[in-house]
Computed example of a mutant assay.
Amino acid sequence: MADQTAHEHATTATNNAPVSVEVDTSYENDSSYGDELSSYSASLTSSVLDYRHENGRRYHGFHDGSYLLPNDEKENDRLDMVHELCLQMLHRKLYLAPIKNPQRVIDLATGTGIWAIDFADLHPQAEVIGCDLSPTQPTLVPPNVKFVVDDIESEWAYERNPFDFIHARYLAFAVRDFGRLIKQCYRSVKPGGWVEFQDWDGQPFSEDGSLKGTGIERYFKEVNGAFESAGYEVRPGPKLEQWFKEAGFVNIHVEKFIIPYGIWPKDKHLKRLGVWAQAGAEAGYEAGALAVLTRYKEWTKEDVMLLASEARADGRKRGIHSMFNFYVVYGQRPEN
């Protein structure tokens, strides 16, 4: 069974002064922990599973409010669709970094855990960790996978046992400080190890002006603006290379992919991508807008549903040729 427990961060002393931690003497003077340990563990588990239910959707309970998309079954299905989109885009590859014989790997914000599970099947010699705010991953997984509940924007303690490979995918709309996060990755990967981020430029565009005045354009104007006002990065893809450089990575490689929305492209490969992109978008319009617009912009649920409906309807019109850019960026920590 996968390990779904909150990751505990180390506490460090300031100026090497000894840390004073007061002992709780309320327990009976036993030589070992008994029922109180089970009780305390149960309360921690309960807090992680104490989900927020709002506007008909379910949201994470651990660090409530730090991530604004749902974690319910409908959203998990959407995340798995985006996983398939990425596999189609990369011709069934899980990653592009030139890793060799990885022994210790982490998937940041693993979601349903599908990438971590696929990677573990592909590399049975590797220990694979998937971390996320929500313990919604399956329990029947390869023996070399475990899942932990953690907030990737909190302080890490992975530097003590660094990784050969760190992977992160579609963190747009989820992370406030990518620069800091990537520096944490640098400190937590072994010398010679690799880090790979795969992410969106969350602003759609069209080459023929067909996006102008559409429900899609309005949706992303409202939603992207709300996320940015709340402090989230919505267009990380084109900035990843600079963040990797600032963190100290070398041998940085950047690939940009076009993801069309819909079946309008003539090219068969792009048409397949467009089908998956449209399926993911239609499932995600409501999920992406509900929390951010109702919590931060005082929209009603009905207003959000109308916005999503208009975007969904325009997304099915062949005359609207919208696209997104998607970036895969990887870099290596220097050997020395």
Rank of each mutant, 00 (worst) to 15 (best):
P102E: 12
A109W: 08
I114A: 02
Q125Y: 04
R92Q: 12
A120M: 02
Q103V: 04
N101F: 12
W115R: 00
R104S: 11
W115P: 07
K93S: 08
E127R: 13
H123A: 10
D121F: 00
A120E: 06
L96F: 08
L122F: 03
A116G: 10
A120Y: 04
A116E: 07
M89Q: 05
L108M: 13
A126R: 03
P102K: 02
R104K: 15
T112R: 06
V105C: 12
I129V: 07
D121T: 00
G130K: 00
Y95G: 05
E127M: 09
A116V: 06
Q88V: 12
N101L: 11
G113N: 09
D118C: 10
L90K: 01
I129F: 14
K93T: 01
W115I: 03
Y95N: 08
I106H: 13
F119T: 08
Y95V: 06
Y95R: 04
A126D: 14
R104A: 02
T112A: 12
L96R: 09
L96K: 11
V128E: 03
P98L: 11
K93I: 03
T110M: 05
A109P: 06
I129S: 05
V128M: 00
I106M: 11
I99E: 15
I129G: 00
H123K: 05
P102L: 05
A120P: 14
P102F: 08
I106D: 15
L90E: 05
H123C: 13
K100N: 14
R92C: 07
A116S: 11
T110G: 05
I117A: 02
R104T: 03
P98R: 04
L96E: 14
L108E: 06
Q103I: 04
R104L: 01
M89A: 02
A126K: 02
L122I: 03
K100Q: 14
L108V: 12
A120K: 02
L96H: 09
Q125S: 15
P98E: 12
K93D: 08
N101G: 11
V128S: 01
P98C: 13
L122K: 14
K93H: 08
Q125T: 12
V128K: 00
R92T: 08
G130P: 10
